[in-house]
C-alpha cells in the first residue's frame, strides 16, 4: 500500500514546479486583494483532481495489471487511491488555512471554519468520481466526471424551476444539519470505497 502511494506521490513531484508556480501566483494575488476564495477553490480543485491525474497515468502505462502481479491486492489498489485523495485534500486544507489566516489574521479557528467547506467539497467530489473512474476508466469516465461535477447545480436548478416547496428548509434547520456534514462525507467516502472495491474486484485487466 505504501509503495503504491509512494508511486503516486512521486509522479506528483515531477510536476511540482508547475503546481507551485500557479499556487504562488494565486497566493500573491489573493494576499494583495485580501480575498482568499479564488485561491481556496483552486487549491482544493488541484488536490481532488490530482487523483484523476494519477489514475490517468496508471491507465496509460498499464500499471494496475502489473501491480496485481506484485504482493498487492485489488482492494489495496483502490484504497491507495482514496488515501491519495485524502492526503492531497489534507495538504490543500492546510495551505488554505495558512492563506485564510494570512489574508485576515485574527482568529485561527475562524480561518479553519472558512476553508472547511472546500475540503468537504473536494472529498465529496473524490467520493463521487472514483467509483466512476474504476468502472469506466479515465478516458471513458471523463464525460461522466463532468456530469458528476455539474449534477448538484442541475439538481438545484431543477428544484428551483419545478416549484417544489422548500419552505421547510429554514436557516435554523440548515444550521442544525451543517455540523453533521463531516459525518455525512466520511460515510459517503466509506460507501464509495466499498463500491469501488466491488467494481475493481470484478474487473478484467
Amino acid at each position: 500500500m505504501i509503495g503504491l502511494l509512494k508511486k503516486d506521490v512521486m509522479s506528483f513531484s515531477g510536476q511540482t514546479k508547475i503546481y507551485l508556480l500557479v499556487i504562488l501566483l494565486y497566493g500573491v494575488f489573493s494576499f494583495f486583494s485580501k480575498d482568499a476564495s479564488m485561491f481556496s477553490v483552486l487549491v482544493s480543485l488541484f488536490g481532488a483532481m490530482y487523483v484523476v491525474t494519477a489514475m490517468a497515468y496508471d491507465e496509460k502505462s498499464g500499471w494496475n495489471k502489473y501491480a496485481l502481479t506484485m504482493p498487492v491486492s485489488r482492494d489495496d489498489i483502490v484504497i491507495a487511491k482514496y488515501l491519495l485523495g485524502a492526503l492531497f485534500t489534507a495538504c490543500a486544507f492546510i495551505l488554505n488555512i495558512v492563506m485564510a489566516f494570512a489574508v485576515a489574521p485574527g482568529n485561527l479557528l475562524e480561518s479553519i471554519y472558512q476553508v472547511l467547506p472546500f475540503a468537504g467539497i473536494a472529498l465529496f467530489y473524490i467520493a463521487v468520481v472514483l467509483p466512476i473512474l474504476f468502472k469506466l476508466g479515465v478516458e471513458k469516465g471523463r464525460m461522466m466526471m463532468l456530469v458528476a461535477f455539474f449534477a448538484p447545480t442541475i439538481l438545484f436548478l431543477f428544484i428551483k424551476e419545478s416549484g417544489i416547496n422548500l419552505d421547510w428548509l429554514t436557516e435554523d434547520l440548515l444550521n442544525r444539519i451543517i455540523p453533521f456534514t463531516p459525518v455525512f462525507i466520511v460515510l459517503l467516502l466509506i460507501g464509495s470505497a466499498w463500491l469501488s472495491c466491488r467494481i475493481f474486484r470484478k474487473k478484467e485487466l
Binding site: 505504501i2 509503495g3 509512494k6 508511486k7 509522479s11 515531477g14 497515468y57 498499464g62 504482493p71 498487492v72
Partner: peptide, 19 residues
C-alpha cells in the same frame, strides 16, 4: 508497465516498499 515518470531510483524506492 511503469508510469513514464519513473527512473531507476524511483523504481527502486517503489519496489522496496512493495516487496
Amino acid at each position: 508497465c511503469f508510469p513514464e515518470y519513473v527512473n531507476l531510483q524511483s523504481a527502486n524506492k517503489i519496489m522496496k516498499s512493495i516487496y
